[in-house]
Simulated assay, not measured.
Amino acid sequence: MSLKTHGRYRYSPISGRPHYDWPDGKRLAFYLAVNVEHFHFGEGLGHTPSYATPQPDVRNYAWRDYGLRVGIWRLFDLFDELELPACLLVNSAVYDYAPQVLERARVRGDEIVAHGRTNSERQGDLGEAAERALIHEATATIARHEGQMPQGWLGPWISETKATPDLLKEEGYSYVLDWPLDDQPVWLTTRAGPLLAMPYPVEINDAPALLTRHHTAADFTGMIVDQFDEMLNQSAQQPLVCAISLHTPIVGQPFRLAQLRRALQHIRTQADNGQVWFTRPGEIAKHVATLPPGIVPGSET
């Protein structure tokens, strides 16, 4: 029986790949991904901490808005306290609604990753022309404000059509976060050339962990610590990418922020051995692009 396939990559067991290092011989690349999202009022999709009510769903809309008004600022302060870089996965609508958030990100030197226009919509619901327009609009908005287009893309709700990687490559993107297939970067095939699939967590991700699977804040802290410690041990054998995905109205709540602080303090302490590269996905992508063909899966000549 022949199964349908995407044709984007071939199977590659992680245990049999060529060796390489991160810059300065480091073994584990670690990055923080912060989802910075804005939503329609009274319509469309949106995370909810409890059951949804008929539109306008004031309670859940306001809870999401807490992330931009309060949560993101607490996270910025925490990252500054621990001297941690981050990338912001930004809905382009945030530029009009809360430009102060992006101003703080520029001061910090955080990377801006495109995250569509708004998480009230899902690009997987669109035809190719409409999806191309969505990608172009979000990209142009970020480029206008930041002076350059973003290198990376995460689809709202991690949603894709069959053409999404092709459209992203044609728009000029270097990497995509939508494909959580590996602990190392992998090159995807597109009709316009290779596009890097950057490891991005769907497990060590506060939205599914805390809102869908109903783990506690302390549970999530334990998950982060165990993920990091185990990946640090595994990275002695091969370079790996460890990431944490955060959403501002979720871990921005004070009781969850306290737990996140404990997890990040642990990571900072354990990283004193000099084997951890605190970085951003764009820097990982740039490093991978310098490696010879045949090193990273999908780059074979």
Score class of each variant (00 low, 15 high):
Ala138Ile: 13
Pro297Leu: 02
Asp125Lys: 03
Pro297Arg: 00
Ala129Lys: 06
Trp63Cys: 09
Tyr11Cys: 05
Thr53His: 12
Gly127Phe: 00
His6Glu: 14
Gly109Trp: 02
Tyr200Leu: 05
Glu137Gly: 10
Val36Tyr: 04
Ile135Gln: 08
Leu134Trp: 12
Gly124Lys: 02
Pro208Gly: 02
Leu75Arg: 07
Ala86Lys: 01
Asp110Ala: 14
Ala133Thr: 13
Pro208Ile: 01
Ser235Leu: 08
Ser245Phe: 02
Asp178Glu: 11
Pro49Asp: 04
Arg256Lys: 07
Tyr61Cys: 02
Tyr173Asn: 09
Leu154Arg: 12
Gln237Tyr: 01
Leu188Tyr: 01
Tyr200Asp: 06
Gly193Val: 14
Arg132Val: 11
Glu128Met: 11
Ile158Gln: 13
Gly7His: 07
Ala217Val: 08
Gly274Cys: 09
Phe278Ala: 02
Gly147Tyr: 05
Thr141Phe: 03
Pro201Trp: 08
Glu121Thr: 14
Trp277Thr: 04
Gly109Ile: 06
Gly116Ile: 13
Tyr95Arg: 09
Met1Gln: 07
Gly274Trp: 03
Arg27Phe: 05
Thr212Cys: 01
Arg10Val: 12
Pro156Asn: 10
Arg27Ile: 01
His214Leu: 13
Trp277His: 07
Ile72Cys: 04
Ala143Lys: 11
Val241Gln: 01
Ala285Trp: 09
Phe220Thr: 08
Ser12Pro: 02
Ser235Phe: 06
Lys26Gly: 02
Ala29Trp: 06
Ile112Phe: 13
Gly116Arg: 12
Leu84Phe: 14
His247Leu: 13
Trp63Met: 07
His215Ser: 09
Gly155Asp: 13
Cys87Ile: 10
Ala138Tyr: 10
Ala29Ile: 12
Asp110Asn: 13
Ala236Asn: 11
Ala93Gly: 14
Glu103Ile: 06
Ile284Phe: 04
His40Thr: 04
Gly152Asp: 11
Ala236Pro: 03
Ile284Cys: 02
Asn273Ala: 06
Tyr20Ala: 08
His214Lys: 15
Arg64Gly: 06
His115Asn: 15
Gly274Leu: 05
His40Ser: 12
Thr139Trp: 12
Leu168Asp: 05
Arg17Phe: 01
Ala209Ser: 14
Ser299Lys: 07
Arg27Leu: 07
Ala140Asp: 15
Val90Gln: 03
Tyr66Gln: 07
Gly152Trp: 12
Ala130Ile: 03
Leu240Ile: 08
Ala289Glu: 13
Ala98Gln: 07
Ile158Ala: 15
Gly116His: 12
Lys169Ala: 14
Val225Gln: 08
Ile14Asp: 04
Gln253His: 02
His38Pro: 05
Ile142Gln: 01
Ser120Cys: 10
Gln151Leu: 15
Leu181Cys: 06
Phe79His: 11
Trp73Lys: 11
His19Trp: 05
